[in-house]
Amino acid sequence: MNTQNNNVISLDAVSKRYGTETVVSDVSFNIQSGECIVLVGHNGAGKTTLMKMMLGLTRPTSGNVEVLGANPANNSKIAQHKTLGYLPESVAFYDAMTGSEVLAFYARLKDVSKTACENLLEVVGLEHAAKRRIGTYSKGMRQRLGLAQAMLGSPQLLFLDEPTTGLDPSLRHQFYELIDALHKEGATSVISSHALNEVEARASRFIIMKSGALIASGTLEELYQQASLPVRLKVSVTPGEAPGVAERLGSEVTISKVNNQSLSLSCFDDDKMPLIRRITDLGDVVNDLQIMPPKLDEVYNHFMNGGQS
């Protein structure tokens, strides 16, 4: 198959146990070149462990991990790849070194020029703190330096573990612009996050993890479909007409709330259009109609609560 060859990363029935504790259990997925995958899950869902296995830092207890056509844990072949960037969760540096010293050290290992280093420091807004010891940096500054080192040498494969924690909104925005720019050049990225909505716009696909197991994966649309959560409608009517309208809509419609002048309804996606037609058929009584698709958080909670919404 043609798509098979496009796999940058492929996991096959991967499990990881520490002693008796199962951290990742039987996870399989493929990631193709150019995708932006978001691993979603609570803390302790196994996201970081999955990433470490993809990076070859940890070996799976069973199953196979393949990254760029090789086993990453085998002789650190993945490490030979100069176009890989990684930002660990709560990144740590050599505290005695200054920001620019550390970045220069990592740049030398990746064969990246000094000017590229200085540019990156500017991009993440650390140019003024570059000559200070990292020991004096705040958490946000360390995170920014972490981003800078992950971006060294325009990586083609990015692993970012909770990348935006400790970043202010403007920098967060800037960070996603950087990721977008890399994606335009064909980069593949794996981003872990404990929230869906933040990365919503960037992600080509989501992988939702819970207690070490993959419980759902797919594009945003696919996730909505899988969750099959009801669409909510809010109908505003002429004051006093609400109970009458509720009666006329009939019993097939789930009505969650009736006020004097508004009704809250919910229905499944397939029933949405017929219902809307029936509401508009009601005529002048209806002043306004608001359609509220399920929120991302609700989709997420749906999966997290084991399928019950």
Partner: peptide, 12 residues
């Protein structure tokens, strides 16, 4: 945790 990061560089 610096070793973890170092080993994701082109370093065996």
């Amino acid at each position: 945790g610096t070793m973890m990061l170092l080993l994701t560089y082109p370093v065996t």
